[in-house]
Design a protein around this nucleic acid. Sequence first.
DNA 1: CTGTATCCACCTTGATACTG
DNA 2: CAGTATCAAGGTGGATACAG
Lengths: 118, 118
Amino acid sequence: MAQITKHPTQECKKSIQAVHDAMYVLGGKWKISIVASLLFGPRRYSEILRDVVGISGKMLSRELKEMETNLLVDRIVSDTQPITVTYELTKYGKSIEPVIITLGEWGETHRKCITRKD
Amino acid sequence: MAQITKHPTQECKKSIQAVHDAMYVLGGKWKISIVASLLFGPRRYSEILRDVVGISGKMLSRELKEMETNLLVDRIVSDTQPITVTYELTKYGKSIEPVIITLGEWGETHRKCITRKD
DNA sequence: CTGTATCCACCTTGATACTG
DNA sequence: CAGTATCAAGGTGGATACAG
């Protein structure tokens, strides 16, 4: 029916909006990396800190807090001595997996391109 | 063989790196939206400006320049009067399509979640 | 039309030190 | 271990004016 020929702008804007929505939630410098880490299973604060190379503690807790607010992760506190905190993706957070996979695959390819061309 | 149990960190870091690489190139506030726009076909500067709601001219040209540098887009100048400039995705740029699609789908779902929960 | 230059407010991030 | 507080620096992005 509606071919993308004469008035593609509406179609286009809709897609762009969807993508923009996604990036609003995943938009921090580190959020996607954190999700990638959490896809491997529940992680402690300090573990994420080691996994996500370059992130600072401040950023990690801040991003995690935002992600908690956005219902992407659960924060589980065990009142051991000293306390341990485990983060894990919610069902909703796990639904990002395809995005991460796709992005990761593209990233690997990209790295190859870089290697060849730089 | 190597189960993701004892030493998941290496596996994990690799994935995270790949994702991080991707975000390095796609990382601006607007780049992904611009790619989304360009996926609908070549676009003029002013068209992208209209498609990507909220972006300013300065940001658009800046982001496009970076994307050109990263070989994601081609910039084609027609020396009409006045000149017109068309941007289109390179083959490499088009390879991001799956990412955008996946992200867009997730974004739509996310919007539904927002609607229900906010 | 397609940008660039400048000014400026705001946001983001890191380093460091500190708390429970 | 799991954060928080504070400071400082740089990046981000918009408005406006200007240029080819």
